[in-house]
Design a protein around this nucleic acid. Structure first.
Lengths: 366, 366
DNA sequence: TCATACAACTTGTACGTACAACTATAGTGG
DNA sequence: CCACTATAGTTGTACGTACAAGTTGTATGA
């Protein structure tokens, strides 16, 4: 026989493992005593002990002196024991992400979870790398900020793998259309609308809009920007709408802004809606360099209400971003998904306009 | 005897473990055979086998049939498999930490490690909590930014536990005096010196210094600040040196600055050296509110060369902080400690003065 | 010289006994 | 009724034997 070469204690082990699989042994249930098993299988108690000892170390059994041996399901236990959640974000150090991470971290720590952090640098290969690394070891759940979400179709396979492994995940800021999962995001379209509308209400008609086009946030903000113009019956000059990609962000918008400002005075934009505060600060710099005053000559509206908005020379009028709250909510929703198995619906945050000093009211001047 | 109650195989186990600790057993070395040990200790071979079996499962020994039993260091092996490194920092979202984390994350990802992030909020209970959480599961190494380092004596026990578990760690920014480990830090004393010296060289003599006193960075910067005065033979008026704690940071310095600026003109400080850029921006705000111009009436020097320094209205003269590089170096040094077992020496970064627009030269005006 | 066989060693498997330590329960005594 | 005890059953410790299986070096033979 082939079996002759396989040690008896291994055979017994496999037999017991099959009991688990078939449901013959359920968690918490008492296993027959060593002597019973020994008699039943015609083995010595010592041999049974060897089997039990291995199964105990592997987490299948729990032996209690004087009481007996009990079954437990290691798989389940491990998942609950893991308590490690991953966050995959595009940029770690960019101004609003630290706040999101901080909110999530605080919530997770208070709930006894560890936080794994990974950045994709808005690069799909790095996103794949990060996903692989994250899932290379047990993971309870994942918070994802999609990479270049406007371009769609990412590393779908890996996300499907997450579902197979039963690792719950949710997305923040934006969602890959192909994937079904909870989403927490700011109503960017409304934000773009509010930004433009605020300027239009203050008498601005030549408003430049600078938006990122490789993430959906930028696309949506632009959408709202256009909608506000339409609602007010103001035409948008195509040349005043500038879109750019992540790679171009340090250069192209600045140059384009300078070019717009260099035009004839009656053509020059009187206000800028900027994709975010960082860009707004940079374009304000461009305006100042060009000899224009802010807000007297040019007004600015930013996005995200970051530190930059209140630290800059002229305090920036901007739209709020929930930041810390969003991180906290994402974490607590994910924990609910893990511990209770419930999938929450999407969460939409409404951005609020924070009026500071970077917008002038043209109506008053007239 | 008390020993009577402790099982022999446990006693033997402890004996063998002490062999590892004392260096009597080195990695790869062959251990005496089961029979030899049995004879030597007057035990049966079965008892020795039980001990060996446990030590093998725990990774201390490797048994090869027909060949013998060999020593190996489990800590190393396990850590290499785990490939998860923790970072414990005081504030996640504060302006320079995201850059440190980012540098570490990039390095770790490229080397195939996962990054666990935890924040202590500069609070020792949270530090303890974080340490517990971090080490609740296998960990390859730890990067620590000490909490309130100037106050000393933290959760020493937990750190010693790290050493016992063979988890290598290093500290950034500052080190707990009681612990022996590699340290990466900026030469803050030199930074404080350079800041004050720059102002003194520009003819300032009434220089206010605002420093945090509950972390060593602040203490060291103050030390350098005083040293520069001494070197130039300029007395420091005690009332112009303000120290504060983390809890007071949002209020006390601002009030103190206003008070100093409200004094008689000939007593008013002509310059401020600020603990960091964040404070500098805040105090610049105070000066502006008080009707003073920056830098014409009051000069400012910050620390850390953060985004705030170049985004603020008057671009801030400040001292560099390696930030991203420090994170990257910390990560790569830690990986070397894990994979090669070598402990690097301390790393000291020299801060450089970045001259921008917030300091006026009084010598020229005279 | 080379291949083979063998001996001497290692750890692995398998059984056995005996008793200790612990748990739960049933029964006993106050 | 409660506290205590005895007891049966469990796993834990400790020793013992015997042989299997794998490794290594040595002696033997062609």
């Amino acid at each position: 026989m082939n079996n002759r070469r396989i040690p008896k204690y291994i055979l017994l082990k496999n037999e017991l493992l099959s009991w688990f699989e078939s449901g013959k042994l359920k968690a918490g249930q008492q296993v027959p005593s060593e002597n019973e098993i020994a008699e039943q299988f015609g083995l010595s108690r010592q041999t049974v002990r060897q089997t039990f000892s291995e199964l105990e170390k592997e987490g299948w059994l729990e032996r209690i002196q004087g009481k007996g041996t009990f079954a437990r399901f290691p798989g389940r236990r491990e998942c609950e024991l893991v308590k490690t959640i991953g966050i995959m974000t595009t940029y770690i150090s960019d101004y609003i992400f630290p706040h999101i991470v901080r909110g999530a971290e605080a919530e997770l720590r208070s709930r006894g979870y560890r936080l794994l952090l990974s950045s994709t640098d808005n690069n799909k290969e790095k996103e794949m790398e990060s996903l692989k690394l994250m899932t290379s070891q047990p993971l309870s759940g994942l918070i994802i900020e999609p990479t270049k979400s406007a371009e769609g179709n990412p590393n779908l396979g890996y996300y499907l793998e997450l579902q197979e492994k039963g690792i719950p995940y949710l997305m923040i800021n934006e969602k890959y259309r192909e994937l079904e999962c909870p989403l927490l995001r700011v109503d960017d379209e409304l934000g773009g609308y509010k930004a433009a509308d605020h300027l239009l209400a203050n008498g601005h008609t030549r408003i430049a809009g600078f938006f990122k086009r490789d993430d959906l946030q930028g696309v949506n903000r632009l959408k709202g920007f256009l909608a506000a113009h339409k609602a007010r019956g103001v035409a948008v000059a195509p040349k005043r709408v500038v879109t750019y990609t992540t790679e171009q962000k340090n250069d192209l918008p600045y140059q384009q802004a300078l070019q717009l400002l260099s035009g004839a005075v009656e053509e020059r934009p009187t206000a800028f809606v900027c994709y975010n505060d960082e860009l707004a600060v940079s374009l304000m710099e461009a305006a100042l360099q060009h000899g224009l005053r802010v807000p007297e000559d040019v007004s600015f509206v930013g996005f995200d209400d970051s530190m930059l908005a209140s630290a800059s020379g002229t305090k920036l009028t901007t739209l709020t971003h929930p930041k810390t709250a969003m991180g906290r909510d994402a974490a607590s929703q994910l924990i609910a998904m893990i511990e209770e198995g419930v999938a929450p619906g999407d969460t939409l945050y409404e951005p609020e306009l924070v009026e500071r000093d970077s917008v002038v009211n043209l109506n008053v001047n007239v």
